[in-house]
Design a protein around this nucleic acid. Structure first.
Lengths: 217, 217
DNA sequence: TCGACCGTTGACTGACCAGTCAATCCGGGA
DNA sequence: TCCCGGATTGACTGGTCAGTCAACGGTCGA
């Protein structure tokens, strides 16, 4: 299905090991997104990757480890990006916009991967996300820190706890992605950009100390 | 566990059929909340209810139907409540507060049930919620209608689509409940009431046309 | 008192699937 | 050219459970 051609014409030196691993991970994204983690059999992943069943177990200890890998790979990128954004000298509102932007663009770039991460990990803290709760929480903490600093310097008002604001902000983003994932919301370039603005506008409209700026969108 | 007394002392005529059904449903809430729907075996439900395995299948066609029943029972109450709230003559902000209040109080009253509904249905649109997508969507639509009317009469500004606002509002509530469910947020009477206020404050602060009122909390 | 009916029981079965493993393949070094 | 080791294969196994079903029992009407 992932009709990406086996891009290995000039790669004769290395035994293509890492490529196969990647191939399996990418196939897993498709398979998990299509049928859901639980309903997806390991053989579905192997089939999708055009690879023998057993090879999945050559590269991963278990089906769980495949999902773990996918999640951690991407979530660590997210944590890095948020940290990087926070390091810059920007109004808090712009920082939040940058974060929303990154997440929305992640979905734009690879909807299947984001679907898997949100549906199977982030929103499944019961079964699977439990293992990753602390990692997920880190993202909230980083966002909360941004809000806290903004409250300290007066650019955000203090009506709401930073932790709570972070939750609401991230929650809004995730809810919108969920809307796209399950076709409850129209998708498209325009909608993606609009969503970024709406998310920040909704949340910061309630957070900004300078209420006038909230109107300026 | 759900120590609700079997409130049927004078019911000698009927062979106590409905009671067993209820008993099983209540036990399922506990079992699903404890182990998650997938990991929970039908025998866990039966054990929790102190009832034979087969009896579950006397009252329900399948394990799925048990979850279906739990979800629909509760969600229909929610839809009724929202409709009722909307019928009243109230500022939109108060309507939203009433909705947030009802949902938070639902969690306060029966955390396990809300955990199951959110974790296993609402946020699991992939596996299970798919069947109920339309039902879930109805709630968003009702909320969106409230926002739309408020925008029309000028009490909410029109910077954000009603559908989007509904999504953000509901998303914020769910994220907070999720925080409680997975011990990422402190729980308690005080926190529950604070959360209601914070949710409405965060969202309406960004929606209210009258910005001054947003400060008055 | 008797029998019919329905609620109740729990052992059993059939299907499914994650994970194992012995066999095969293949590239590169000697 | 031959051999070694890691990559690759896919048939097989063991365990798990959802759902079935034949039997049991207690209540009520006749």
């Amino acid at each position: 299905m992932t009709s990406s051609p086996d891009t290995e014409p000039a790669r004769a030196t290395r035994p293509a090991g890492p490529d196969k691993r990647r191939l399996i991970l990418d196939a897993a994204v498709v398979a998990f997104a299509q049928r859901g983690f639980h309903a997806c059999r390991v053989s579905d992943i192997a089939d999708e990757a055009n690879v023998a069943y057993g090879l999945v177990y050559h590269y991963f200890r278990s089906k769980d480890e495949v999902l773990d890998t996918l999640f951690l790979e991407r979530w660590n990128v997210l944590l890095g990006v948020i940290t990087e954004i926070d390091r810059q000298e920007l109004p808090a509102r712009d920082k939040l916009y940058a974060i929303a932007s990154f997440i929305v663009d992640s979905y734009r770039h690879d909807p299947n991967l984001m679907k898997v991460i949100i549906v199977e990990v982030t929103r499944a803290a019961n079964s699977f996300g439990r293992t990753h709760l602390e990692t997920i929480r880190e993202a909230y903490a980083l966002i909360a820190a941004i809000v806290e600093k903004a409250q300290a310097d007066g650019s955000f008002r203090a009506a709401v706890t930073p932790g709570f604001a972070a939750l609401a902000f991230y929650g809004a983003i995730e809810q919108v992605l969920t809307g796209w994932i399950f076709d409850m919301l129209p998708r498209g370039e325009e909608e993606f950009d609009q969503a970024k603005a709406f998310i920040v506008e909704t949340i910061c409209g309630g957070l900004d100390a300078d209420r006038a700026s909230a109107r300026a969108v």
